[in-house]
Design a protein around this nucleic acid. Structure first.
Length: 384
RNA sequence: GGGGAGGUGGCGGAGCGGUCAAUCGCAGCAGGCUGUAAACCUGCCGCCCUUGUGGCUACGGAGGUUCGAACCCUCCCCUCCCCA
């Protein structure tokens, strides 16, 4: 008997939800933040340190792993978990985001998206069926349907037709997913779940239509995609809030690609259970650190002789052992350890924030927590 | 002592009569980054101000030629290399 996906909602505090989901590789407490590990690694961190920082699930990427090293090679290694040595849950994104981020290198057709590889220029067709097959070979615990992440701004007509195509693609993904067993695809994780993705740009009626159609198809969880792509943050909050209300209470809700620390708190408040974002990792490598008192740009001259840790309230390895002055030196000297130490801190901050969010919901003090968090997060920016 | 090369903005190094406050790299200063083509990208970087088709001072020093000189000439100062 294969263990499969399930979600338990433990309780709520306003629209905020406290729960956990079960996967073949373990349990994840929600609301959860999932560090992004596009190419089979969360850049600049060891799995050991990731786990210690509290990561219960990480992302991988269909498009990138398909191009290199190849999903069949990974299947032959026993699947993505065994290949990369991460024994906890993994969620794979479908390549839908690359339709957005690599827009210059692809053409969208009804059948799917044709990409020209950023590695060697070769052409590859990513169809909904293929995205499902690749993710089956990777053996992630949660696979995502292939969607089109629409860019912003977009006209209502473009948003509508893009959304409708994403729905058709979602249906094809679900159908393909259903017949994997018995196909010639080497399935690395029989307990894999499939999530649908709601699109529709910033048009709430399109979002509602997308949500209804996606729920009708039926998935283990539902994502809200196509946000945090340049729209005003209030619009993102509003679309998130309204769309979350239209999704089933008993399934996890995943806001794709968000966000800043404030976004996490604000969107949990609007009913979101799962987040992923490159911000803590990428910004760490670029010298921007998140702390309980706001953002620090470690490149700034004001930290040259600052002996304090990044965040006195943080218990991560970086904060326990190193000063801002040292981290600034490492960054400016171009040392790899700068990226490693900074990434560890930012992820620790994000994951610790999620822990505090979960506790606050459990104690039904989430709103108080939220007010305090937003107030202290702006402290440093007010200083400067 | 003889021969040769050269002195340009914090550093390296272009420019060799006007379009030069001076290409470019580094360093420096600041900003950005939201399902990762990102250890990346952008802006500023002589001084002053009302930041502009603005003012001032500038390419070792002093003179000179010229309508005009970082660029040509003279002298001086200083570096480096080779030979004695």
């Amino acid at each position: 008997m294969v263990s499969s996906f399930s979600f338990d909602l433990h309780g709520t505090d306003g629209a905020a939800r406290r729960g956990e989901f079960h996967t073949p590789h373990g349990i994840v407490q929600t609301p959860a933040f999932m560090p992004v590990g596009t190419q089979g690694t969360v850049k600049a961190v060891l799995h050991r340190d990731l786990r210690e920082a509290g990561a219960e699930i990480i992302l991988g990427n269909t498009y990138h792993l398909f191009l290199r090293p190849g999903d069949e090679l990974i299947a032959r290694r026993g699947g993505l978990h065994r290949f990369i040595g991460w024994t906890s849950p993994i969620l794979t994104d479908s390549g839908g985001f690359q339709i957005f981020s690599l827009a210059q290198r692809r053409v969208i057709r009804e059948d799917g998206a044709e990409f020209q590889s950023h590695l060697d220029g070769s052409r590859h067709m990513l169809t909904p069926e293929r995205a499902v097959d690749i993710q089956a070979r990777l053996g992630s615990d949660i696979a995502m349907v292939l969607d089109e992440c629409l860019s912003y701004p977009a006209s209502r007509d473009d948003a509508a037709s893009s959304m409708q195509r994403s729905v058709r693609w979602a249906r094809r993904c679900r159908e393909r997913f259903a017949v994997l067993d018995g196909s010639d695809v080497q399935v690395s994780n029989p307990g894999q779940a499939l999530f649908g993705i709601v699109q529709g740009g910033v048009f709430q009626d399109l979002r509602d239509e997308s949500a209804a159609a996606t729920v009708q198809i039926g998935f283990e969880g539902y994502a809200i995609g196509g946000l945090s792509v340049g729209e005003p943050v209030e619009v993102m909050y509003s679309v998130t809030e309204q769309t979350a209300k239209t999704l089933p209470v008993d399934r996890p809700r995943y806001l794709m690609g968000a966000g800043t620390p404030e976004d996490l708190v604000e969107c949990v408040a609007r009913g979101i259970d799962m987040f992923d974002c490159v911000m803590p990792t990428r910004n760490a490598r670029n010298g921007q650190l998140f702390t309980s008192e706001g953002k620090i740009n470690i490149k700034n001259a004001r930290y040259a002789e600052d002996d304090r840790p990044l965040d006195p309230a943080c218990g991560c390895y970086t904060c326990r052992h190193h000063s801002r002055a040292y981290l600034r030196h490492l960054y400016l000297a171009g040392e790899m350890t700068a990226g490693a130490l900074n990434t560890l801190h930012n992820l620790s901050f994000y994951l610790d924030t999620m822990r505090r969010i979960r506790d606050a919901i459990a104690f039904r003090t989430f709103d108080t927590f939220r007010q305090g968090f937003l107030r202290s997060a702006s402290r440093l920016s007010l200083d400067s």
